[in-house]
Protein backbone atom coordinates (compact mmCIF):
# COMPACT_ATOMS: atom_id res chain seq x y z
CA UNK A 1 0.00 0.00 0.00
CA UNK A 2 1.16 3.51 -0.64
CA UNK A 3 2.92 5.59 1.93
CA UNK A 4 0.61 8.39 0.82
CA UNK A 5 3.20 10.83 2.14
CA UNK A 6 1.25 13.72 0.67
CA UNK A 7 -1.81 12.75 2.75
CA UNK A 8 -3.97 12.64 -0.34
CA UNK A 9 -7.70 12.38 0.13
CA UNK A 10 -8.38 9.69 -2.45
CA UNK A 11 -9.72 6.15 -2.68
CA UNK A 12 -7.86 3.40 -4.57
CA UNK A 13 -4.58 5.10 -5.69
CA UNK A 14 -4.69 3.13 -8.96
CA UNK A 15 -8.16 4.45 -9.82
CA UNK A 16 -7.41 8.18 -9.50
CA UNK A 17 -7.65 8.90 -13.22
CA UNK A 18 -11.04 7.21 -13.62
CA UNK A 19 -12.48 8.69 -10.45
CA UNK A 20 -11.31 12.26 -11.12
CA UNK A 21 -12.82 11.88 -14.59
CA UNK A 22 -16.19 10.90 -13.12
CA UNK A 23 -15.98 13.91 -10.83
CA UNK A 24 -15.07 16.21 -13.69
CA UNK A 25 -18.12 15.19 -15.70
CA UNK A 26 -20.28 15.97 -12.64
CA UNK A 27 -18.59 19.35 -12.26
CA UNK A 28 -19.96 20.33 -15.68
CA UNK A 29 -23.53 20.09 -14.34
CA UNK A 30 -24.90 18.37 -17.41
CA UNK A 31 -23.24 20.67 -19.95
CA UNK A 32 -20.62 18.08 -20.88
CA UNK A 33 -20.82 14.29 -21.03
CA UNK A 34 -18.66 11.22 -20.72
CA UNK A 35 -17.77 9.65 -24.06
CA UNK A 36 -16.36 6.14 -24.41
CA UNK A 37 -13.75 5.06 -21.91
CA UNK A 38 -12.27 8.37 -20.78
CA UNK A 39 -13.22 11.38 -22.91
CA UNK A 40 -15.28 14.43 -22.06
CA UNK A 41 -17.21 16.36 -24.72
CA UNK A 42 -19.50 19.39 -24.60
CA UNK A 43 -23.17 18.65 -25.26
CA UNK A 44 -23.76 21.79 -27.31
CA UNK A 45 -21.34 22.29 -30.17
CA UNK A 46 -21.47 24.89 -32.93
CA UNK A 47 -22.92 23.13 -35.99
CA UNK A 48 -20.85 22.72 -39.17
CA UNK A 49 -17.69 23.97 -37.47
CA UNK A 50 -14.18 22.55 -37.18
CA UNK A 51 -13.59 20.95 -33.78
CA UNK A 52 -10.96 21.60 -31.13
CA UNK A 53 -9.76 18.55 -29.19
CA UNK A 54 -7.22 18.77 -26.38
CA UNK A 55 -5.84 16.11 -24.07
CA UNK A 56 -3.02 14.56 -22.12
CA UNK A 57 -2.21 12.59 -19.01
CA UNK A 58 -4.22 13.09 -15.84
CA UNK A 59 -2.80 14.38 -12.57
CA UNK A 60 -2.20 17.94 -13.79
CA UNK A 61 -5.73 19.19 -13.16
CA UNK A 62 -7.48 21.30 -14.10
CA UNK A 63 -5.62 20.91 -17.44
CA UNK A 64 -6.32 19.64 -20.06
CA UNK A 65 -9.73 18.12 -19.55
CA UNK A 66 -10.87 21.03 -17.36
CA UNK A 67 -10.37 23.39 -20.30
CA UNK A 68 -13.42 22.01 -22.11
CA UNK A 69 -16.23 24.52 -22.36
CA UNK A 70 -17.92 27.26 -24.41
CA UNK A 71 -15.21 29.35 -26.06
CA UNK A 72 -12.61 26.78 -24.99
CA UNK A 73 -12.05 23.18 -26.20
CA UNK A 74 -14.93 21.07 -27.55
CA UNK A 75 -13.62 17.95 -25.86
CA UNK A 76 -10.65 16.23 -24.26
CA UNK A 77 -9.05 12.78 -24.38
CA UNK A 78 -7.77 11.81 -20.95
CA UNK A 79 -4.91 9.45 -20.11
CA UNK A 80 -3.98 7.68 -16.92
CA UNK A 81 -2.03 9.60 -14.25
CA UNK A 82 0.99 11.19 -16.00
CA UNK A 83 0.44 8.98 -19.10
CA UNK A 84 -0.83 10.04 -22.50
CA UNK A 85 -4.30 8.87 -23.56
CA UNK A 86 -4.14 5.74 -25.75
CA UNK A 87 -5.15 6.02 -29.43
CA UNK A 88 -8.60 4.50 -28.98
CA UNK A 89 -9.48 7.17 -26.42
CA UNK A 90 -8.20 9.84 -28.80
CA UNK A 91 -10.37 8.26 -31.50
CA UNK A 92 -13.54 8.12 -29.39
CA UNK A 93 -13.11 11.80 -28.51
CA UNK A 94 -12.38 12.68 -32.15
CA UNK A 95 -15.55 10.98 -33.37
CA UNK A 96 -17.62 12.74 -30.70
CA UNK A 97 -16.39 16.29 -31.44
CA UNK A 98 -16.29 16.02 -35.23
CA UNK A 99 -19.08 17.84 -37.08
CA UNK A 100 -17.93 17.00 -40.56
CA UNK A 101 -15.41 19.85 -40.74
CA UNK A 102 -12.45 18.00 -39.22
CA UNK A 103 -10.73 18.07 -35.86
CA UNK A 104 -7.71 20.01 -34.59
CA UNK A 105 -5.57 18.22 -32.00
CA UNK A 106 -3.93 20.70 -29.65
CA UNK A 107 -1.69 19.32 -26.90
CA UNK A 108 1.70 19.63 -25.21
CA UNK A 109 4.96 18.37 -26.68
CA UNK A 110 5.68 15.11 -24.82
CA UNK A 111 6.77 11.88 -26.52
CA UNK A 112 3.83 9.82 -25.27
CA UNK A 113 1.26 12.42 -26.29
CA UNK A 114 2.72 12.87 -29.77
CA UNK A 115 2.86 9.10 -30.36
CA UNK A 116 -0.67 8.42 -29.18
CA UNK A 117 -2.35 11.42 -30.79
CA UNK A 118 -0.61 10.58 -34.09
CA UNK A 119 -1.91 7.02 -33.86
CA UNK A 120 -5.37 8.35 -33.00
CA UNK A 121 -5.19 10.66 -36.03
CA UNK A 122 -4.37 7.69 -38.29
CA UNK A 123 -7.36 5.76 -36.95
CA UNK A 124 -9.58 8.82 -37.44
CA UNK A 125 -8.33 9.34 -41.00
CA UNK A 126 -9.22 5.70 -41.73
CA UNK A 127 -12.76 6.62 -40.76
CA UNK A 128 -12.73 9.62 -43.06
CA UNK A 129 -12.24 12.29 -40.39
CA UNK A 130 -9.71 14.97 -41.30
CA UNK A 131 -7.28 15.75 -38.50
CA UNK A 132 -4.72 18.50 -38.11
CA UNK A 133 -2.29 18.84 -35.22
CA UNK A 134 -0.74 21.83 -33.49
CA UNK A 135 1.75 21.03 -30.74
CA UNK A 136 2.25 23.39 -27.82
CA UNK A 137 5.94 24.00 -27.01
CA UNK A 138 6.16 27.16 -24.94
CA UNK A 139 8.78 26.09 -22.37
CA UNK A 140 11.73 28.39 -23.10
CA UNK A 141 14.16 26.49 -20.85
CA UNK A 142 13.66 23.02 -22.33
CA UNK A 143 15.66 23.67 -25.52
CA UNK A 144 17.24 26.60 -27.39
CA UNK A 145 15.12 28.56 -29.92
CA UNK A 146 16.88 26.73 -32.76
CA UNK A 147 15.45 23.43 -31.48
CA UNK A 148 11.84 24.36 -30.84
CA UNK A 149 10.62 20.89 -31.72
CA UNK A 150 12.30 19.67 -28.52
CA UNK A 151 10.54 22.19 -26.30
CA UNK A 152 7.92 20.95 -23.87
CA UNK A 153 4.44 22.35 -23.47
CA UNK A 154 3.76 23.98 -20.09
CA UNK A 155 1.49 26.71 -18.69
CA UNK A 156 1.32 28.67 -21.95
CA UNK A 157 -1.20 26.07 -23.04
CA UNK A 158 -3.89 28.00 -21.17
CA UNK A 159 -3.79 31.18 -23.31
CA UNK A 160 -3.19 29.00 -26.38
CA UNK A 161 -6.30 26.83 -25.76
CA UNK A 162 -8.29 29.98 -24.94
CA UNK A 163 -7.32 31.62 -28.24
CA UNK A 164 -7.87 28.45 -30.25
CA UNK A 165 -11.21 27.95 -28.48
CA UNK A 166 -12.27 31.45 -29.49
CA UNK A 167 -11.16 30.73 -33.05
CA UNK A 168 -13.18 27.51 -33.08
CA UNK A 169 -16.26 29.64 -32.37
CA UNK A 170 -15.64 31.94 -35.29
CA UNK A 171 -13.80 30.26 -38.18
CA UNK A 172 -15.30 27.88 -40.71
CA UNK A 173 -12.37 25.72 -41.78
CA UNK A 174 -9.94 23.41 -40.05
CA UNK A 175 -7.05 25.10 -41.87
CA UNK A 176 -7.99 28.46 -40.43
CA UNK A 177 -8.38 27.02 -36.93
CA UNK A 178 -4.96 25.35 -37.17
CA UNK A 179 -3.37 28.57 -38.46
CA UNK A 180 -4.65 30.59 -35.53
CA UNK A 181 -3.72 27.91 -32.97
CA UNK A 182 -0.20 27.78 -34.40
CA UNK A 183 0.02 31.56 -34.26
CA UNK A 184 -1.05 31.48 -30.60
CA UNK A 185 1.71 28.95 -29.91
CA UNK A 186 4.25 31.04 -31.81
CA UNK A 187 3.29 34.09 -29.76
CA UNK A 188 3.52 32.37 -26.36
CA UNK A 189 6.51 31.68 -24.09
CA UNK A 190 6.76 30.35 -20.53
CA UNK A 191 9.40 29.88 -17.84
CA UNK A 192 8.74 27.86 -14.70
CA UNK A 193 10.54 27.54 -11.39
CA UNK A 194 10.15 24.83 -8.79
CA UNK A 195 10.63 24.88 -5.04
CA UNK A 196 9.21 21.43 -4.15
CA UNK A 197 8.23 18.27 -6.04
CA UNK A 198 4.73 16.85 -6.33
CA UNK A 199 4.11 13.17 -5.67
CA UNK A 200 2.96 10.16 -7.67
CA UNK A 201 -0.57 9.32 -6.44
CA UNK A 202 -0.09 5.55 -6.86
CA UNK A 203 3.08 5.36 -4.78
CA UNK A 204 3.30 8.54 -2.71
CA UNK A 205 6.87 8.93 -4.01
CA UNK A 206 8.05 12.44 -4.92
CA UNK A 207 8.21 13.10 -8.67
CA UNK A 208 11.80 14.35 -8.31
CA UNK A 209 14.39 15.40 -5.72
CA UNK A 210 15.11 19.03 -4.88
CA UNK A 211 17.06 20.32 -1.87
CA UNK A 212 15.22 22.59 0.58
CA UNK A 213 17.44 25.63 0.07
CA UNK A 214 17.33 25.88 -3.72
CA UNK A 215 14.97 26.80 -6.56
CA UNK A 216 14.99 24.85 -9.84
CA UNK A 217 15.07 27.56 -12.49
CA UNK A 218 13.38 26.58 -15.74
CA UNK A 219 12.23 23.21 -14.41
CA UNK A 220 9.49 21.30 -16.23
CA UNK A 221 6.21 20.32 -14.61
CA UNK A 222 7.41 16.74 -13.99
CA UNK A 223 10.74 17.95 -12.63
CA UNK A 224 12.56 17.85 -15.96
CA UNK A 225 15.93 19.54 -15.65
CA UNK A 226 15.85 23.28 -16.18
CA UNK A 227 18.69 25.73 -16.66
CA UNK A 228 20.09 25.31 -13.15
CA UNK A 229 19.61 25.57 -9.41
CA UNK A 230 19.73 28.93 -7.65
CA UNK A 231 19.70 29.63 -3.91
CA UNK A 232 16.25 30.13 -2.38
CA UNK A 233 15.41 33.82 -2.74
CA UNK A 234 12.68 36.44 -2.37
CA UNK A 235 9.86 37.19 -4.81
CA UNK A 236 11.48 40.51 -5.72
CA UNK A 237 14.72 38.68 -6.57
CA UNK A 238 13.04 35.82 -8.43
CA UNK A 239 10.65 37.75 -10.70
CA UNK A 240 13.40 39.49 -12.73
CA UNK A 241 15.28 36.20 -13.14
CA UNK A 242 12.22 34.57 -14.70
CA UNK A 243 11.47 37.58 -16.88
CA UNK A 244 15.09 37.82 -18.06
CA UNK A 245 14.82 34.26 -19.39
CA UNK A 246 11.57 35.15 -21.17
CA UNK A 247 12.99 38.36 -22.64
CA UNK A 248 16.15 36.60 -23.82
CA UNK A 249 14.13 34.21 -26.01
CA UNK A 250 13.26 34.74 -29.65
CA UNK A 251 9.75 36.18 -29.18
CA UNK A 252 10.24 39.81 -30.06
CA UNK A 253 8.72 42.07 -27.39
CA UNK A 254 8.81 45.77 -28.18
CA UNK A 255 7.57 48.86 -26.40
CA UNK A 256 3.86 49.23 -27.05
CA UNK A 257 3.21 45.50 -27.51
CA UNK A 258 0.13 44.18 -25.76
CA UNK A 259 0.39 40.93 -23.84
CA UNK A 260 -1.50 38.44 -21.73
CA UNK A 261 0.51 37.83 -18.57
CA UNK A 262 -0.20 34.54 -16.80
CA UNK A 263 1.21 33.79 -13.34
CA UNK A 264 0.53 30.09 -12.70
CA UNK A 265 0.95 28.09 -9.53
CA UNK A 266 2.29 24.57 -10.13
CA UNK A 267 0.01 23.21 -7.43
CA UNK A 268 0.55 24.23 -3.84
CA UNK A 269 2.10 27.67 -4.22
CA UNK A 270 -0.41 30.05 -2.69
CA UNK A 271 -2.30 32.92 -4.30
CA UNK A 272 -0.53 35.16 -1.79
CA UNK A 273 2.79 34.31 -3.43
CA UNK A 274 1.37 34.75 -6.93
CA UNK A 275 0.17 38.23 -5.98
CA UNK A 276 3.53 39.19 -4.47
CA UNK A 277 5.26 37.93 -7.62
CA UNK A 278 2.85 39.87 -9.82
CA UNK A 279 3.69 43.00 -7.80
CA UNK A 280 7.36 42.35 -8.53
CA UNK A 281 6.90 41.54 -12.21
CA UNK A 282 4.55 44.28 -13.39
CA UNK A 283 7.00 47.22 -13.06
CA UNK A 284 9.58 45.25 -15.06
CA UNK A 285 7.05 44.60 -17.85
CA UNK A 286 6.06 48.26 -17.81
CA UNK A 287 9.68 49.43 -17.87
CA UNK A 288 10.03 47.48 -21.10
CA UNK A 289 7.01 49.34 -22.47
CA UNK A 290 4.77 46.27 -22.53
CA UNK A 291 1.05 46.80 -22.03
CA UNK A 292 -0.64 44.06 -20.05
CA UNK A 293 -4.00 43.55 -21.74
CA UNK A 294 -4.98 40.87 -19.27
CA UNK A 295 -3.50 39.30 -16.17
CA UNK A 296 -4.29 35.72 -15.17
CA UNK A 297 -3.39 34.49 -11.68
CA UNK A 298 -4.35 30.93 -10.83
CA UNK A 299 -3.24 27.33 -10.46
CA UNK A 300 -4.28 25.82 -13.78
CA UNK A 301 -1.24 23.85 -14.92
CA UNK A 302 -0.16 21.77 -11.95
CA UNK A 303 1.60 18.61 -10.92
CA UNK A 304 -0.16 17.47 -7.76
CA UNK A 305 1.14 19.41 -4.74
CA UNK A 306 4.27 20.56 -6.54
CA UNK A 307 5.35 24.03 -5.42
CA UNK A 308 6.60 26.66 -7.80
CA UNK A 309 5.32 29.12 -10.35
CA UNK A 310 5.55 29.88 -14.02
CA UNK A 311 5.22 33.12 -15.94
CA UNK A 312 3.73 32.98 -19.44
CA UNK A 313 3.60 35.80 -21.93
CA UNK A 314 1.35 35.78 -24.99
CA UNK A 315 1.89 38.62 -27.41
CA UNK A 316 -1.37 39.82 -28.94
CA UNK A 317 -1.69 41.19 -32.45
CA UNK A 318 -5.02 42.57 -33.69
CA UNK A 319 -6.38 39.17 -34.63
CA UNK A 320 -5.35 37.47 -31.37
CA UNK A 321 -6.60 40.40 -29.30
CA UNK A 322 -10.02 40.22 -30.92
CA UNK A 323 -10.16 36.48 -30.14
CA UNK A 324 -8.84 37.01 -26.62
CA UNK A 325 -11.67 39.42 -25.82
CA UNK A 326 -14.38 36.82 -26.53
CA UNK A 327 -15.81 35.25 -23.38
CA UNK A 328 -15.09 31.66 -22.41
CA UNK A 329 -16.09 29.29 -19.65
CA UNK A 330 -14.59 26.09 -18.29
CA UNK A 331 -13.72 24.39 -15.02
CA UNK A 332 -10.11 25.51 -15.42
CA UNK A 333 -10.41 29.00 -16.89
CA UNK A 334 -13.32 31.37 -17.29
CA UNK A 335 -13.29 34.86 -18.76
CA UNK A 336 -16.36 37.04 -18.63
Amino acid sequence: MSKNSAKKIINDPLKCADELFEGLVLAYDGKARKVGRRSIVMNELRPDAPALLVGGGAGHEPIYHGLVGPGMADGAAIGDIFAAPPPDIVLEATEAVNRGKGVLYLYGNYAGDVLNFDLGAELAEEEGITVKTVIINDDVCSAPPSEKSKRRGVAGLVPVVKLAGAAAQTVDTLEELARIAQKAVDHTRSVGVSTKPGSIPATGEPTFELADDVIGLGMGIHGEKGVGLIPMCTADELAPKILDLLFADDLELNAGDEIVFFVNSLGSTHMMELLILLRAARPILEAKGLKVHQTILDNIVTCQEMAGVSFSITKLDDELKRLWDLPCESVGYTKL
Partner: peptide, 15 residues
Protein backbone atom coordinates in the same frame (compact mmCIF):
# COMPACT_ATOMS: atom_id res chain seq x y z
CA UNK B 1 -1.35 -3.27 -25.58
CA UNK B 2 -1.77 0.10 -27.21
CA UNK B 3 -5.24 0.73 -25.82
CA UNK B 4 -4.63 -0.59 -22.32
CA UNK B 5 -1.24 1.03 -21.67
CA UNK B 6 -1.34 4.56 -23.09
CA UNK B 7 1.80 6.64 -22.68
CA UNK B 8 4.87 6.23 -24.87
CA UNK B 9 5.33 2.50 -24.09
CA UNK B 10 1.82 1.59 -25.24
CA UNK B 11 2.39 3.31 -28.56
CA UNK B 12 5.87 1.79 -29.04
CA UNK B 13 5.15 -1.82 -28.10
CA UNK B 14 1.72 -1.70 -29.70
CA UNK B 15 3.32 -0.48 -32.94
Amino acid sequence: MMSSMGGASGAIFGS
